[in-house]
Simulated scan of single mutants.
Amino acid sequence: MTNSLRKIETLVDGLSFTEVPRWHNGRLWFVDFYTYRVLAVDPDNPEQVETVADIPEQPSGIGFLPDGDALLVSMRDRRLIRRTADGALSEYADLSALAPWHLNDMVVDSQGRAWVGNFGFDLMAGKPMTATNLIRVDPNGQATEVANGLRFPNGMVVAPDGNQLIVAETFGQQITAYDIGAHGNLSGKRAWAKLGPDPETSDVMEFVGGAAFLPDGICLDAEGAVWAADAGHNRVLRLAEGGEILDEISTGDMGVFACMLGGDDGRTLFMCTAPSFNEEERKSTREAAVKMVRVDVPSDGLP
């Protein structure tokens, strides 16, 4: 394992809580939770940050359909919003009948299917942890529950061949994999990498205080390794299937909640950082940032 001392640079700062970075057409897209904006920036012109959408019910996951339109998660009302090239926004799917609590991260595959997670319970109010489901939204907007029993499904990636969905289960302390069938069904659930035991408590703060690994946003590289933001330990880990830690990059005194490989050669690792994930703290401060660091192996798969 490498405990990396690579130089970390700041791309954008002065934000509330950055999440779900996505590299798309030469720019990094990401969200700022508590200013309710989806943003995009060219790393060569970091002072020119564009607001590409305002999502009043709080943005989260970002994906791109085959025609180039963006899909955006609207967390609190549990909807997907479509953004066309001219910036127009419209409802794409209403998932409120299927998702028991706020929508979370999302990945869109090459066929235009969106795979969407949700909290499952009221995290910020400290409610007891409960498992939840995963929802697939087809290109016609039809939504289907395709998996359940996930412990806070978070970042997701689709393997390059389109046949495997990999999901970060934050409160399962693991990365979970499924096989994707021809019609979008999921099967073969397995622990792709497990770094800590299943929770023995339903109390969020008790669990978080003792957790070894809290995977949040993830991305995939060309050697089949997953970079995972470890939300509990101010680091990103590069993991091999099976759980071996191949690399570790510390973010010092800042928490890190998502990561994405991008840049012209796919070797820039973008990281969303903030001092904590506490909603009340983040709403009233502007301490979050997007950081970046160079790595050796380029991106692969989706997003």
Rank of each mutant, 00 (worst) to 15 (best):
M1L: 03
T2S: 14
T2I: 15
T2N: 14
D13F: 05
F17R: 01
E19Q: 09
E19T: 03
W29S: 08
F30T: 01
V31L: 01
D32Q: 05
Y36P: 00
R37W: 00
V38F: 11
V38H: 10
V41I: 09
N45A: 14
V49F: 13
V49L: 14
T51S: 13
D54L: 06
P56V: 03
G61T: 05
D67G: 09
R79F: 05
I81R: 06
T84E: 04
T84D: 15
T84S: 15
A88N: 11
A88W: 01
E91H: 10
E91K: 14
Y92P: 03
D94T: 10
L95C: 14
A97W: 01
A99S: 13
N104D: 12
D105Y: 03
D105I: 06
Q111T: 13
R113F: 00
A114C: 12
G117C: 03
A125W: 01
A131D: 11
L134T: 04
L134C: 06
I135A: 11
I135W: 08
P139N: 09
N140A: 13
F152I: 06
P153I: 04
G162T: 10
G162I: 12
T176D: 07
I180F: 13
G181H: 10
G184S: 07
G184M: 07
L186M: 09
S187D: 12
R190E: 04
K194T: 12
K194W: 04
L195Q: 03
G196R: 06
P197S: 12
P199D: 04
E200A: 15
T201Q: 07
T201E: 05
V204G: 05
F213D: 04
L214R: 02
L220Q: 08
G224I: 02
G224S: 07
A225V: 00
V226L: 15
A229P: 02
H233Y: 08
L237S: 11
R238W: 03
R238C: 14
A240K: 13
E241Q: 13
I245Q: 09
E248F: 13
M254G: 00
V256I: 11
A258W: 03
G263H: 03
D264N: 14
F270K: 09
M271Y: 11
M271D: 10
F277T: 00
R282W: 00
T285I: 02
A288S: 15
A288D: 04
V290L: 10
V293N: 10
V293F: 10
V293H: 08
S299Y: 03
D300S: 15
G301N: 10
P303A: 15
